[in-house]
């Protein structure tokens, strides 16, 4: 991700070719942010304008608006260019309200915690 000249930004790993494009940024904690890339540096620190978090639970999803975000590079997993021609999500997915997705997220989290504790209790049985 060097400071490449204008003629070879499309050949290098520079994020310059993604400037002013709508992007999907995957973070290390699994969060998915969407927004327009306005600035970046060699660590993949990035400024996203009009950022929103896309929360997906099962077949439900919601975009929660966040505003202007500066992302510290070490948290970045992947930056993907969103193809505006294509459907963003599979057609079976349903957009729901923020309250609803938060509720679904909580249910999912509790279910996975329960699975964790069950597994722990059963560990002595030595399943695999």
């Amino acid at each position: 991700m060097s400071w490449a000249g204008p003629e070879d930004i499309y050949l290098s790993t520079s994020l310059a070719s993604y400037l002013d494009r709508k992007l999907l940024v995957l973070l290390r904690d699994g969060r998915k942010l969407m927004g327009t890339l306005r600035s970046f540096d060699q660590f993949a620190n990035a400024v996203l304008e009009g950022a929103c978090e896309r929360v997906i639970v099962g077949e439900q999803y919601c975009d929660i608006p966040l505003g202007l975000y500066v992302i510290r590079g070490e948290n970045v997993v992947l930056i993907g260019e969103l193809d505006t021609e294509r459907e963003e999500l599979p057609p079976n997915m349903i957009r729901v309200s923020e309250a609803e997705i938060k509720r679904a997220q909580k249910v999912e989290r509790e279910a996975s915690e329960l699975r964790g504790t069950m597994r722990k209790r059963m560990e002595f049985l030595d399943f695999d």
């Binding site: 994020l15 997993v77 930056i79 993907g80 260019e81 999500l89 599979p90």
Partner: peptide, 16 residues
């Protein structure tokens, strides 16, 4: 990973 459906080009940070 349904959210990756419309990603055609991507940048991956070396550290991950």
């Amino acid at each position: 990973y349904p959210h990756m459906l419309s990603v055609r080009n991507c940048f991956i940070r070396g550290s991950v």
